[in-house]
Structures are given as structure tokens and as C-alpha cells.
Design a protein around this nucleic acid. Structure first.
Lengths: 136, 136
DNA sequence: CCGCATCCGGCGTGATACTG
DNA sequence: CAGTATCACGCCGGATGCGG
């Protein structure tokens, strides 16, 4: 029902793309489904500190459950963003680290963390003002 | 199996934090709870195109439901990331646009989109290889 | 007519307990 | 220590309805 001619050539890789073509929106959505959920970015951000073990991550990321950590790590490993090294020892030891692909997200994650820390007060204030204002 | 552990030291990167202190982890998590869910970044990314109406966003973001769009928009407005302008007309018209706070996310969003477009093939290949390899 | 709140069904999520 | 199995809850999505 759209009937619009789609510009297929608009890839716009060099520099900031000014607009998202409809077909890229789908790609972006798929990726954001992976890296854009709450825990994935937290795990990647935490792994910036270096090689980490399962329980280290569990402690380093407040609020995450074992289930979601396992799931997230498996998915990140599955997508090639992190490496998983299991040592057949007793006690068992599994180390996780950023793979090159995950490392390429590093700058973005840092920026996002930066943004979060910089603006979270502003957001809180905005939200508070909103609450007091429109409490009807 | 893999068996190769990646040597990775704590590299200082541009920005205040090269590592995430535990206390900041909580802040980051809170922000990522807001901004890191599937739809929020998609909405922000889509709004980069300029002022948009509700149904425009609905069409521009494939897969989103009316419910989630309303919710996401309300939250973004609530947090001060976007502006909402309702015109008391017939037919009614509601326009959404990025507020300065949301606009400050622009660069990050663009980077993320760029990353998504650049690496989604790589991720797919990794995933496919993983599937064929360890189908156990 | 558009925007969006509400109601219900399904699934993902989270806490606990258990296994290797 | 690392991860899975189980179950109950809550959130997501689709349809409906109403207000402006």
C-alpha cells in the first residue's frame, strides 16, 4: 500500500547518514535487536575492562540474572562479538573477552556510557519536572 | 574449540571513563534501560529525518506496534528527549521531533547505525558459521 | 479520520534449585 | 564455578474502542 519507489542506492556509509532508507531500517532494527537490548551493551561495556569470568560479570553487572547473562554471553559469542575460553580444570574456569568485532563497538559503547553519565541528571530532572507538572 | 585467549589490557580511550566503576554501572544500566531497548533507539534514529507524525513513525519503523510506539514516544517525551506537539484540529495531528537532549544522542545513534550497516554481514556470517560448525 | 488507552493471549524474563 | 531446568510473573503485541 506504500507504492513508493525505494532508493536502493542510498547506502551512505561515509560519514553520518542523514536519513535512514526503509530497507536499512530493517537491518538496523535487526542489529538493534541484538546489541540494543539492555544487557548486551552492559556486558560489552563491562568486558572493556579486559578478560572476565562468568561470576565476575555477574557481580559487575548489577541486576542481571544468571539466565540472562548466560543467554547474552551465548548470543554475543554466537554473533562473534566476544570470545569464550573454557579451561577443562577443576574448578572450571571460563573466560570471556571482546573479539575484534565486539571491540569495534568499543568507541560507540564508550560514547554511550559517556552520554549516560553526562545526561542522566538532566533526564532525571526532566522526568521529575514532568511528574510534578502534569500530575493532573 | 577455540582455545585462544585474547590478550586485552585496559586501554585508555577518549572520554572520562576508561573503565566502568561499579557505581557508574548502576547509572549506565538505568540509562540503558531507557535508551537501550529495541525501539527507543529506532525511534530516535528515525526522528533524525526531522519532524514526524505518529503514523509516519509507525510506517517508518517496521515491526513496531502502536502500543510500543505510543509507550516509547511517551517515555522519550517524559525524559525530555523529544518534543510532542499536538494540534487540536480535524483530523488531529501530533508531531514529534528531537529535543536538544535527544539531539545530543544523534552522533551516537549515527555511529550505531553505521556500525550496524557495516558489520551486519560479518555478524550473519559468524552466526552461520557457528550454526554449521557446532550444530552438535 | 488520527492518535492512543485498554483488554486479553502468548512469550520472554527473572528467582530459585539443581547438575557437571 | 559455570551453566541449565522449572515455574510464575510481567511485559509485548493485536484488536478494539473512544476522544478530539
Amino acid at each position: 500500500m506504500d507504492g513508493v519507489a525505494v532508493q536502493r542506492e542510498t547506502v551512505a556509509l561515509p560519514g553520518p547518514c542523514s536519513r535512514i532508507p526503509v530497507e536499512n531500517a530493517d537491518i538496523v532494527r535487526q542489529i538493534l535487536d541484538r546489541v540494543g537490548d539492555k544487557w548486551t551493551l552492559m556486558v560489552i561495556a563491562t568486558l572493556r575492562g579486559g578478560v572476565m569470568r562468568y561470576t565476575d560479570l555477574l557481580r559487575a553487572i548489577p541486576g542481571i540474572s544468571q539466565r540472562m547473562l548466560s543467554r547474552t554471553l551465548a548470543q554475543l559469542h554466537h554473533d562473534g562479538l566476544i570470545t569464550r575460553t573454557a579451561y577443562a580444570e577443576v574448578p572450571p574456569r571460563v573466560e570471556y573477552a571482546l573479539a575484534p568485532l565486539g571491540d569495534s563497538l568499543n568507541d560507540i559503547v564508550v560514547s554511550l556510557i559517556d552520554w549516560a553519565i553526562t545526561h542522566h541528571d538532566e533526564i532525571r530532572q526532566h522526568r521529575a519536572r514532568f511528574d510534578t507538572a502534569g500530575e493532573h
